[in-house]
Computed example of a mutant assay.
Amino acid sequence: MDETVRLMHYDPRWRQEFEQTRSGVLQSCRGWVVDVRHIGSTAVGGMIARPILDVVAAVQDEGDVEQALAESADLIEGLNYLRGETPMWAAETIVLNKPRRGEPTHRVFLTYLDSPFWRSSLAVRDALQSDRSLSLRFEETKVARWRDAGGDPQQYADDKSVFFAHLIEHHL
């Protein structure tokens, strides 16, 4: 992911892309994955976003979670995903990317049901979906950080993570 960050206006097809991704992950994981949710800016109608469909997929938090995560990750790789680097803010996940000429088009954050990542990613999504003024502030911040970073992926991610930390601390 050394390419320049691209942002684009909301694409209503992202909802259908999510449904297809959700179906594929659930079917391929043969019961290991029990829930798949659309997260990130592509899940917020009308928001400018990176054209990367982010989903969080969860295995049951019972029994051998490590085995469930490993088995599920292997099965998701069979859907043309590659394991990616797990960012510090998603420590309890396995990240899988579906690449297309460099930048991924889809990203699955595989975790266990009700993990801290599961809860926070859904809470952020829900807050942005339900509070238009908050989503507009986030969008303005995101575009400003993108400009300031000159499209640099690492700088953009670092700057955006500050906003998420503030959002989680003060609004959720």
Rank of each mutant, 00 (worst) to 15 (best):
D35N: 14
D35P: 08
V36W: 05
V36K: 00
R37V: 12
H38N: 08
H38G: 11
I39D: 04
G40E: 02
S41N: 07
S41W: 05
S41M: 01
S41A: 12
T42L: 00
A43F: 04
V44G: 00
V44D: 02
V44M: 00
G45P: 12
G46P: 04
G46A: 01
M47K: 01
M47T: 06
M47Y: 03
I48S: 02
I48L: 02
A49Q: 01
R50C: 09
R50L: 07
P51A: 14
P51H: 11
I52D: 01
I52W: 06
L53V: 13
L53D: 03
L53Y: 02
D54Q: 03
V55S: 07
A57M: 08
A58Y: 08
V59R: 05
V59I: 12
V59E: 10
V59T: 13
Q60D: 15
Q60I: 12
D61T: 10
D61P: 08
D61S: 14
E62M: 12
E62R: 15
D64H: 07
D64A: 12
D64I: 11
V65S: 06
E66G: 13
E66N: 12
E66T: 13
E66K: 13
Q67T: 11
Q67N: 10
Q67I: 13
Q67F: 12
A68H: 11
A68V: 10
A68Y: 07
L69V: 14
L69C: 09
L69E: 09
L69M: 14
L69R: 07
L69W: 04
A70W: 10
S72M: 08
A73R: 08
A73K: 06
D74S: 14
D74R: 13
L75K: 06
L75M: 14
L75S: 06
I76H: 07
E77W: 04
G78N: 06
L79C: 09
N80A: 15
Y81K: 01
Y81P: 00
Y81N: 03
Y81Q: 02
L82S: 12
L82P: 05
R83F: 05
R83T: 04
G84K: 04
G84F: 03
G84A: 08
G84M: 01
E85Y: 06
E85M: 08
P87V: 00
P87N: 04
M88V: 13
W89T: 07
A90E: 06
A90C: 13
A91V: 08
A91I: 05
E92F: 05
E92V: 01
E92S: 06
T93M: 03
I94P: 05
V95T: 11
V95F: 00
L96Y: 01
L96I: 08
N97M: 09
K98V: 10
P99A: 05
P99K: 14
P99L: 15
R100A: 14
R100W: 15
R100F: 13
R100V: 14
